[in-house]
């Protein structure tokens, strides 16, 4: 049996997906990237291999992706996360025409064709606005666990718009609103709106989307998903583990390159 691995080293988490030759996901693992990329990769790959019951030498081809892809010397090939998210999303939801990936340090909107190939993309990589990091910082300000932040926004009865785009200024704006005793859920809803507005701007630069798949950790945030669906006027495809889509795409590329080579 041949096996393929995709390793996605993101700014916050590292994911590994192992596929068999029939594209079946044999195992996956997710862990925090932390300050040492090499350790994070070794640890996550080790976990995925042990869950699959495989030794490392059973992997026939490894593709690395994500911002830390350059630091994986044993990868057979390096491919950008843009191509990998596209391929992974297409594999899970073949009708996907647009992938929205809101990651830790950047967000991307990717238009893909019927084979999962990228045809256009937009990327917000200049500042934290419109990224998962923005929500994380704000959740910290409210001392709310990030996993509960989105759900809290859904309780809002009267959304309070946040005018600052910059994370630092938005934080001071939020602090003044808290000082005025504005309800937390209303402010939080406004913060989610701010992220979604940035992402929606990018969606429009790559054109009107057909079926949309969301990848990345923020896809688990219902506050963001609902607001995006409001804009799209249709539901978004979300996998139970949206974080592994990049690694899955990398593993699919690994198989493709192995067969081609």
């Amino acid at each position: 049996m041949t096996y393929f691995a995709g390793i996605d080293v993101g700014s916050l988490t590292t994911e590994v997906v192992i596929l068999d030759k029939d594209d079946r996901m044999v195992s996956y693992a997710i862990s925090a990237t932390g300050a040492n990329v090499t350790e994070a990769v070794e640890h996550t790959l080790g976990q995925a291999l042990s869950r699959a019951g495989l030794a490392r030498d059973r992997l026939n081809f490894i593709v690395a992706t994500g911002y830390g892809r350059i630091t994986i010397p044993f990868a057979d090939k390096k491919i950008t996360e843009i191509s990998c998210h596209a391929m992974g999303a297409h594999h899970l939801f073949p009708d996907t025409e647009t992938v929205i990936d809101i990651g830790g340090q950047d967000s991307k909107v990717i238009r893909i064709d019927g084979e999962g190939k990228v045809i256009d993309f937009a990327m917000n990589d200049k500042c934290a606005a419109g990224t998962g990091r923005f929500l994380e910082v704000m959740a910290g300000t409210f001392q709310v666990p990030i996993d509960d932040f989105g759900a809290l926004s859904l309780k809002s009865k009267r959304e309070i718009p946040i005018s600052s785009i910059c994370t630092v200024f938005a934080e001071s704006e939020v602090i003044s609103l808290i000082a005025r005793n504005e309800p937390a859920e209303d402010i939080i809803r406004g913060l989610h709106r701010s992220v979604v507005s940035r992402v929606w701007g990018m969606v429009q630069t790559v054109g009107v989307p057909g079926p949309v798949t969301m990848s990345g950790g923020v896809a688990k945030n219902p506050g963001v998903v609902i607001l995006l669906e409001e804009h799209l006027k249709k539901p978004i495809h979300i996998h139970t583990e949206p974080q592994i889509i990049g690694a899955l795409g990398a593993a699919l590329f690994a198989k493709k390159h192995f067969l081609r080579d």
């Binding site: 191509s83 190939k117 045809i119 990589d125």
Partner: peptide
């Protein structure tokens, strides 16, 4: 070029 800028160029080349 920042790492993200490199990624954008590489992704464009892959595309």
């Amino acid at each position: 070029l920042s790492g993200q800028m490199v990624t954008r160029v590489e992704a464009f080349v892959e595309m």
